[in-house]
Simulated assay, not measured.
Amino acid sequence: MNQNILITSAGQRVSLVKAFQKEIKKLNQNNKVYTVDLNPILAPACHISDGYRTVNRVTDPNYISELINLCKELSIRLIIPTIDTELLVLAENRELFLKEGIIPIVSGLEFVKACRDKRIINQFFIENNIDIPKNLDKNNLSFPLFIKPYDGSLSKDTFLIENESDLTDYHFQNPKLMFMEYINHAQYDEYTVDTYFDKNGNLKCIVPRKRIFVRAGEVNKGVTNKNEIVDYINQRLSHIEGAVGCLTMQFFFNQESKRIIGIEINPRFGGGYPLSYLAGANYPKYLIDEYILGNSIEYFNDWEDNLLMLRYDDEVLVRNYED
Protein backbone atom coordinates (compact mmCIF):
# COMPACT_ATOMS: atom_id res chain seq x y z
CA MET A 1 0.00 0.00 0.00
CA ASN A 2 1.32 3.45 -0.95
CA GLN A 3 2.11 5.96 1.79
CA ASN A 4 1.24 9.23 0.08
CA ILE A 5 1.51 12.78 1.41
CA LEU A 6 -0.77 15.75 0.77
CA ILE A 7 0.50 19.34 1.01
CA THR A 8 -2.36 21.83 1.29
CA SER A 9 -2.41 25.41 -0.02
CA ALA A 10 0.73 24.50 -1.92
CA GLY A 11 1.07 27.81 -3.76
CA GLN A 12 4.77 28.50 -4.34
CA ARG A 13 6.12 25.85 -1.90
CA VAL A 14 8.08 24.12 -4.66
CA SER A 15 11.11 23.37 -2.46
CA LEU A 16 8.92 21.91 0.29
CA VAL A 17 7.15 19.62 -2.18
CA LYS A 18 10.50 18.45 -3.57
CA ALA A 19 11.84 17.75 -0.07
CA PHE A 20 8.86 15.56 0.81
CA GLN A 21 9.05 13.82 -2.57
CA LYS A 22 12.70 12.99 -2.01
CA GLU A 23 12.11 11.57 1.49
CA ILE A 24 8.87 9.63 0.91
CA LYS A 25 10.19 8.00 -2.27
CA LYS A 26 13.11 6.58 -0.26
CA LEU A 27 10.53 4.24 1.31
CA ASN A 28 8.99 3.31 -2.01
CA GLN A 29 9.46 4.91 -5.43
CA ASN A 30 5.71 4.57 -5.97
CA ASN A 31 4.89 6.84 -3.01
CA LYS A 32 3.65 10.24 -4.09
CA VAL A 33 3.32 13.80 -2.84
CA TYR A 34 0.06 15.39 -3.92
CA THR A 35 -1.02 19.00 -3.54
CA VAL A 36 -4.24 20.95 -3.27
CA ASP A 37 -4.87 24.65 -3.77
CA LEU A 38 -7.71 27.06 -4.35
CA ASN A 39 -6.37 27.70 -7.86
CA PRO A 40 -3.83 24.95 -8.58
CA ILE A 41 -3.30 25.82 -12.23
CA LEU A 42 -1.64 29.04 -11.03
CA ALA A 43 0.27 27.38 -8.17
CA PRO A 44 3.82 26.38 -9.22
CA ALA A 45 4.12 23.76 -6.46
CA CYS A 46 1.07 21.94 -7.82
CA HIS A 47 2.78 21.41 -11.16
CA ILE A 48 5.92 20.10 -9.44
CA SER A 49 3.95 17.63 -7.28
CA ASP A 50 2.86 14.14 -8.35
CA GLY A 51 -0.69 15.37 -8.89
CA TYR A 52 -3.02 18.11 -7.71
CA ARG A 53 -6.64 18.86 -7.00
CA THR A 54 -8.74 21.99 -6.55
CA VAL A 55 -10.32 22.62 -3.15
CA ASN A 56 -12.71 25.22 -1.79
CA ARG A 57 -11.62 27.84 0.70
CA VAL A 58 -10.87 26.57 4.17
CA THR A 59 -13.87 28.59 5.41
CA ASP A 60 -16.26 26.63 3.17
CA PRO A 61 -18.59 24.39 5.25
CA ASN A 62 -17.77 21.44 2.98
CA TYR A 63 -14.01 21.89 3.17
CA ILE A 64 -13.33 19.09 5.66
CA SER A 65 -15.57 16.48 4.02
CA GLU A 66 -14.13 17.41 0.63
CA LEU A 67 -10.58 17.07 1.93
CA ILE A 68 -11.28 13.70 3.58
CA ASN A 69 -12.75 12.36 0.34
CA LEU A 70 -9.72 13.54 -1.59
CA CYS A 71 -7.38 11.90 0.91
CA LYS A 72 -9.22 8.59 0.59
CA GLU A 73 -9.15 8.82 -3.21
CA LEU A 74 -5.40 9.53 -3.26
CA SER A 75 -4.41 7.10 -0.45
CA ILE A 76 -3.06 9.94 1.69
CA ARG A 77 -1.38 9.06 4.98
CA LEU A 78 -0.07 12.49 6.07
CA ILE A 79 -1.46 15.99 5.54
CA ILE A 80 1.01 18.89 5.71
CA PRO A 81 -0.74 22.28 6.09
CA THR A 82 1.19 25.39 5.05
CA ILE A 83 -0.94 28.43 5.95
CA ASP A 84 -2.26 29.75 9.26
CA THR A 85 -5.98 29.66 8.38
CA GLU A 86 -5.90 25.88 7.84
CA LEU A 87 -4.43 25.04 11.23
CA LEU A 88 -7.46 25.77 13.40
CA VAL A 89 -9.87 23.92 11.10
CA LEU A 90 -7.62 20.85 10.87
CA ALA A 91 -6.99 20.83 14.63
CA GLU A 92 -10.73 21.03 15.33
CA ASN A 93 -11.46 18.12 12.97
CA ARG A 94 -8.37 16.02 13.57
CA GLU A 95 -10.31 13.02 14.89
CA LEU A 96 -12.40 12.81 11.71
CA PHE A 97 -9.20 12.30 9.71
CA LEU A 98 -7.69 9.86 12.19
CA LYS A 99 -10.80 7.65 11.93
CA GLU A 100 -9.97 7.26 8.24
CA GLY A 101 -6.29 6.47 8.87
CA ILE A 102 -5.23 9.96 7.76
CA ILE A 103 -2.89 11.98 10.00
CA PRO A 104 -2.98 15.78 9.82
CA ILE A 105 0.35 17.11 11.04
CA VAL A 106 -1.13 19.84 13.19
CA SER A 107 -0.58 20.82 16.81
CA GLY A 108 -3.23 20.50 19.49
CA LEU A 109 -6.25 22.80 19.31
CA GLU A 110 -5.42 24.88 22.40
CA PHE A 111 -1.85 25.48 21.29
CA VAL A 112 -2.98 26.42 17.77
CA LYS A 113 -5.44 28.92 19.28
CA ALA A 114 -2.66 30.39 21.41
CA CYS A 115 -0.38 30.83 18.40
CA ARG A 116 -3.14 32.60 16.47
CA ASP A 117 -3.55 35.24 19.20
CA LYS A 118 -0.43 37.28 19.90
CA ARG A 119 -1.79 38.34 23.29
CA ILE A 120 -1.94 34.71 24.40
CA ILE A 121 1.41 33.75 22.89
CA ASN A 122 3.00 36.73 24.64
CA GLN A 123 1.69 35.36 27.93
CA PHE A 124 3.05 31.94 26.93
CA PHE A 125 6.48 33.49 26.39
CA ILE A 126 6.35 35.26 29.76
CA GLU A 127 5.38 32.04 31.56
CA ASN A 128 8.39 30.35 29.96
CA ASN A 129 10.81 33.12 30.93
CA ILE A 130 11.11 34.49 27.39
CA ASP A 131 11.45 38.25 26.96
CA ILE A 132 8.87 40.03 24.76
CA PRO A 133 8.53 43.60 23.43
CA LYS A 134 7.15 45.88 26.13
CA ASN A 135 3.43 46.62 25.83
CA LEU A 136 2.62 50.34 25.77
CA ASP A 137 -0.28 52.22 27.32
CA LYS A 138 -2.20 54.02 24.56
CA ASN A 139 -2.60 56.98 26.90
CA ASN A 140 1.09 57.23 27.74
CA LEU A 141 3.10 56.51 24.61
CA SER A 142 6.81 56.81 23.91
CA PHE A 143 8.24 56.94 20.39
CA PRO A 144 9.16 55.24 18.18
CA LEU A 145 6.67 52.41 18.69
CA PHE A 146 5.27 49.51 16.71
CA ILE A 147 1.62 48.59 16.12
CA LYS A 148 0.33 45.23 14.95
CA PRO A 149 -2.91 43.21 15.20
CA TYR A 150 -3.10 40.40 17.72
CA ASP A 151 -4.37 37.99 15.05
CA GLY A 152 -2.51 39.21 11.98
CA SER A 153 -0.18 37.53 9.51
CA LEU A 154 1.98 38.44 6.50
CA SER A 155 2.76 41.84 8.08
CA LYS A 156 -0.77 43.08 7.32
CA ASP A 157 -1.92 46.10 9.37
CA THR A 158 1.49 46.68 10.94
CA PHE A 159 2.79 50.21 11.52
CA LEU A 160 6.06 51.81 12.58
CA ILE A 161 5.09 55.00 14.40
CA GLU A 162 8.03 57.37 14.69
CA ASN A 163 6.23 60.29 16.31
CA GLU A 164 2.79 61.32 17.51
CA SER A 165 1.82 62.88 14.17
CA ASP A 166 1.95 59.42 12.55
CA LEU A 167 -0.95 58.21 14.67
CA THR A 168 -4.50 58.26 13.28
CA ASP A 169 -7.97 57.56 14.63
CA TYR A 170 -7.76 54.12 13.00
CA HIS A 171 -4.88 53.14 15.27
CA PHE A 172 -6.89 53.94 18.39
CA GLN A 173 -10.29 52.72 17.21
CA ASN A 174 -9.25 49.30 15.91
CA PRO A 175 -9.57 47.00 18.96
CA LYS A 176 -7.28 44.39 17.40
CA LEU A 177 -4.22 46.64 17.30
CA MET A 178 -1.48 46.21 19.92
CA PHE A 179 0.86 49.08 20.81
CA MET A 180 4.36 47.91 21.72
CA GLU A 181 8.03 48.70 22.01
CA TYR A 182 9.75 49.15 18.66
CA ILE A 183 12.68 46.78 18.18
CA ASN A 184 15.32 48.71 16.24
CA HIS A 185 16.59 46.64 13.32
CA ALA A 186 19.88 48.53 13.43
CA GLN A 187 20.50 47.02 16.88
CA TYR A 188 18.72 43.66 16.59
CA ASP A 189 18.96 40.87 14.05
CA GLU A 190 15.70 39.11 13.19
CA TYR A 191 15.72 35.33 13.29
CA THR A 192 13.30 32.70 12.15
CA VAL A 193 13.88 29.52 14.13
CA ASP A 194 12.78 26.20 12.66
CA THR A 195 12.08 23.84 15.55
CA TYR A 196 10.87 20.25 15.48
CA PHE A 197 8.67 18.74 18.21
CA ASP A 198 7.95 15.02 18.30
CA LYS A 199 4.47 13.55 18.82
CA ASN A 200 4.95 13.87 22.60
CA GLY A 201 5.69 17.59 22.41
CA ASN A 202 9.42 17.18 23.05
CA LEU A 203 11.91 19.43 21.28
CA LYS A 204 14.24 17.58 18.90
CA CYS A 205 15.88 20.22 16.70
CA ILE A 206 16.50 23.98 16.67
CA VAL A 207 17.79 25.87 13.62
CA PRO A 208 18.03 29.68 13.86
CA ARG A 209 18.30 31.36 10.48
CA LYS A 210 19.02 35.06 10.24
CA ARG A 211 16.66 36.98 7.98
CA ILE A 212 18.94 39.03 5.74
CA PHE A 213 16.33 40.08 3.18
CA VAL A 214 12.59 39.48 3.14
CA ARG A 215 10.34 39.73 0.09
CA ALA A 216 6.54 39.59 0.35
CA GLY A 217 6.79 38.40 3.95
CA GLU A 218 9.07 35.46 3.10
CA VAL A 219 12.83 35.08 3.52
CA ASN A 220 14.66 35.71 0.25
CA LYS A 221 18.17 35.73 1.70
CA GLY A 222 19.07 34.02 4.96
CA VAL A 223 21.86 32.23 6.81
CA THR A 224 21.90 29.53 9.49
CA ASN A 225 23.53 30.48 12.81
CA LYS A 226 24.44 28.28 15.77
CA ASN A 227 24.26 31.06 18.32
CA GLU A 228 22.86 31.77 21.80
CA ILE A 229 19.28 31.30 20.55
CA VAL A 230 19.78 27.51 20.42
CA ASP A 231 20.48 27.17 24.14
CA TYR A 232 17.94 29.86 24.99
CA ILE A 233 15.12 27.88 23.36
CA ASN A 234 16.44 24.53 24.56
CA GLN A 235 16.41 25.66 28.18
CA ARG A 236 12.93 27.23 28.04
CA LEU A 237 10.93 25.27 25.48
CA SER A 238 12.24 21.70 25.66
CA HIS A 239 8.62 20.57 25.94
CA ILE A 240 5.44 22.25 24.70
CA GLU A 241 2.15 20.53 25.44
CA GLY A 242 0.34 19.91 22.16
CA ALA A 243 3.19 21.00 19.88
CA VAL A 244 3.68 18.76 16.84
CA GLY A 245 6.10 18.77 13.94
CA CYS A 246 7.69 21.94 12.56
CA LEU A 247 7.10 25.10 14.59
CA THR A 248 8.39 28.34 13.08
CA MET A 249 9.39 30.81 15.80
CA GLN A 250 10.36 34.48 15.44
CA PHE A 251 13.00 36.10 17.66
CA PHE A 252 15.06 39.29 17.74
CA PHE A 253 18.66 39.04 18.95
CA ASN A 254 21.03 41.83 20.00
CA GLN A 255 24.59 40.64 19.44
CA GLU A 256 26.05 43.11 21.94
CA SER A 257 23.63 42.98 24.87
CA LYS A 258 22.65 39.34 24.10
CA ARG A 259 19.01 40.25 24.68
CA ILE A 260 16.70 37.74 22.96
CA ILE A 261 13.08 38.74 22.35
CA GLY A 262 10.27 36.35 21.41
CA ILE A 263 7.82 37.65 18.79
CA GLU A 264 5.56 34.81 17.64
CA ILE A 265 5.16 31.10 16.93
CA ASN A 266 3.60 29.68 13.77
CA PRO A 267 2.89 25.95 14.24
CA ARG A 268 3.64 24.97 10.64
CA PHE A 269 6.41 24.95 8.05
CA GLY A 270 7.54 28.47 7.21
CA GLY A 271 8.37 29.67 3.73
CA GLY A 272 12.10 29.72 4.50
CA TYR A 273 12.28 26.19 5.92
CA PRO A 274 14.11 24.83 2.82
CA LEU A 275 17.29 26.48 4.16
CA SER A 276 17.09 24.38 7.34
CA TYR A 277 16.38 21.26 5.27
CA LEU A 278 19.42 21.87 3.07
CA ALA A 279 21.48 22.47 6.22
CA GLY A 280 20.60 18.94 7.38
CA ALA A 281 17.56 19.46 9.60
CA ASN A 282 15.42 16.86 7.84
CA TYR A 283 11.93 17.46 9.24
CA PRO A 284 10.13 15.69 6.36
CA LYS A 285 12.11 12.55 7.24
CA TYR A 286 11.32 13.00 10.95
CA LEU A 287 7.60 13.13 10.16
CA ILE A 288 7.82 10.02 7.99
CA ASP A 289 9.86 8.22 10.65
CA GLU A 290 7.42 9.10 13.43
CA TYR A 291 4.02 8.89 11.81
CA ILE A 292 4.53 6.26 9.10
CA LEU A 293 7.36 4.05 10.37
CA GLY A 294 6.62 4.46 14.09
CA ASN A 295 10.20 5.36 14.98
CA SER A 296 11.28 7.77 17.71
CA ILE A 297 13.33 10.89 16.94
CA GLU A 298 16.65 11.66 18.59
CA TYR A 299 17.76 15.22 19.36
CA PHE A 300 19.75 16.59 16.41
CA ASN A 301 22.16 19.52 16.38
CA ASP A 302 24.59 18.51 13.64
CA TRP A 303 23.16 20.81 11.00
CA GLU A 304 25.40 23.05 8.90
CA ASP A 305 26.25 26.38 10.48
CA ASN A 306 26.69 29.59 8.44
CA LEU A 307 24.94 28.18 5.37
CA LEU A 308 23.79 31.10 3.23
CA MET A 309 20.66 30.80 1.07
CA LEU A 310 20.13 33.19 -1.85
CA ARG A 311 16.80 32.67 -3.57
CA TYR A 312 16.00 33.59 -7.15
CA ASP A 313 13.01 33.41 -9.47
CA ASP A 314 12.52 30.39 -11.68
CA GLU A 315 9.79 29.40 -14.13
CA VAL A 316 7.18 26.66 -14.29
CA LEU A 317 5.67 26.38 -17.76
CA VAL A 318 2.15 25.01 -18.34
CA ARG A 319 1.31 24.02 -21.91
CA ASN A 320 -2.06 24.72 -23.54
CA TYR A 321 -3.27 26.94 -20.69
CA GLU A 322 -6.74 28.40 -21.13
CA ASP A 323 -8.12 31.08 -18.82
Rank of each mutant, 00 (worst) to 15 (best):
A10D: 08
V14Y: 01
A19G: 07
L27F: 02
L27P: 05
Q29E: 15
P40T: 13
G51M: 07
R57D: 15
N62I: 02
I64V: 15
S65V: 11
L78W: 06
I83Y: 13
T85Q: 15
T85K: 09
R94D: 12
V106M: 09
R116H: 10
K118A: 05
I121D: 01
N122M: 09
Q123A: 09
D131R: 13
N135C: 08
N135T: 14
L136Q: 13
D137R: 09
S142L: 13
L145P: 07
S153D: 11
S155M: 02
T158N: 14
T158P: 00
E162P: 10
E164S: 15
D166T: 09
T168E: 11
D169L: 15
Y170K: 14
H171S: 12
H171N: 11
Q173P: 03
L177K: 10
F179A: 11
Y182G: 07
N184I: 01
D189G: 02
D189P: 03
T192F: 00
N200G: 12
N200M: 11
K210F: 01
R211N: 07
K226G: 09
N227M: 09
E228C: 05
Q250C: 04
F251P: 02
G262Y: 00
P267S: 10
Y286Q: 07
G294E: 02
D302C: 09
D302V: 03
M309V: 01
M309G: 08
V318A: 10
V318R: 09
N320H: 14
